[in-house]
Design a binder for these strands. Structure first.
Lengths: 162, 162
DNA sequence: TATTGTTATACTCTATAACTATA
DNA sequence: TATAGTTATAGAGTATAACAATA
């Protein structure tokens, strides 16, 4: 009685399955982010930019004159880890580090014309990448996605684990 | 003419803003994952487990007897990086590495009774963590979230960037 | 020849302590 | 004293090459 067992694996077809994790929202978000990240890295490669250098350029563009400490806070990275990023962008002539007129300790960051041009081209590529991501996702679903992701972050902030 | 400029920053209130990135779905997914990850790390800490060791236990539980190569594929990590993870779990007596009867090169992985017990307790904590994440997100939104994340992964697989 | 598990290694990302110069 | 930028460093996580044993 009972038919032959092909495999002891969870999905019963002889191939191991990830069902034990696939039911978790966190796992699904992680898998989505890894896929998006890999695709975005490729989208930025032609411009010689990494995700972190693109982010720095975009944030300096929107917030001209901000300091490295402010930028690090905005990027949610530690101040020491921003130094080499800014070094790299400055060496490539994409942004300037000027002594702040108001605070002798701080630098005021600004994009150069080249930096603005490169950011513009890269942003077009990022928009194309985003358009591909959200293909077949209508406006309502897209808004629901944003709302759900925001709610999740709020839930964690409100009731963090430890 | 024209009122005093409080700040040149994007949000105009004297504080720099991340609006330049906040409009991207990828950025929102990343932020959500980072928050979920931090919370999950804390949820697993009491059990002496990291996300990667919990994943390994859960997958071996669902797929008893699978090999390290199969597990590495399932976890989407490289085979060499799995060795120390299995070492650690074996040293703690949570799983066994038995010579596969069918393939002299491979090990068949199984959870011990202790491993099953620890996985059970940890899974309760992960479920509690997940319940907190999805608080205030109704079933329809939750299904929409899953569908959207799946669609995004499919879009990338279908039309990858480079 | 190809594959399993392993070692060694390297590269990125991230986190902390401590220094200097300014405030 | 506190903060901005910096240096040095250490720890994760991840990726590849190469080897012995087995298929």
């Amino acid at each position: 009685m009972g038919k032959a067992v092909v495999s002891k694996f969870a999905n019963g077809d002889g191939t191991p399955s990830d069902d034990a994790l696939g039911g978790f929202v966190g796992y699904r978000i992680r898998r989505a982010w890894l896929a998006v990240q890999a695709d975005l890295v490729n989208a930025l490669k032609p411009f010689g930019l990494r995700i972190i250098t693109y982010s720095a350029l975009a944030l300096v563009m929107s917030n001209p004159g901000l300091s490295q400490a402010q930028l690090a806070t905005l990027m949610e990275i530690e101040r020491p880890n921003l130094v080499s990023i800014i070094d790299e962008l400055q060496k490539r002539g994409l942004l300037t580090r000027d002594k702040s007129p108001k605070d002798g300790r701080a630098y005021a960051l600004h994009l150069t014309t080249d930096g603005q041009a490169l950011l513009g081209s890269a942003t077009q590529a990022v928009r194309a990448h985003e358009a591909r991501l959200t293909h077949h996702i209508d406006d309502v679903s897209r808004e629901n996605l944003d709302a759900a992701l925001t709610q999740i972050r709020q839930n964690i902030e409100t009731k963090p684990n430890a």
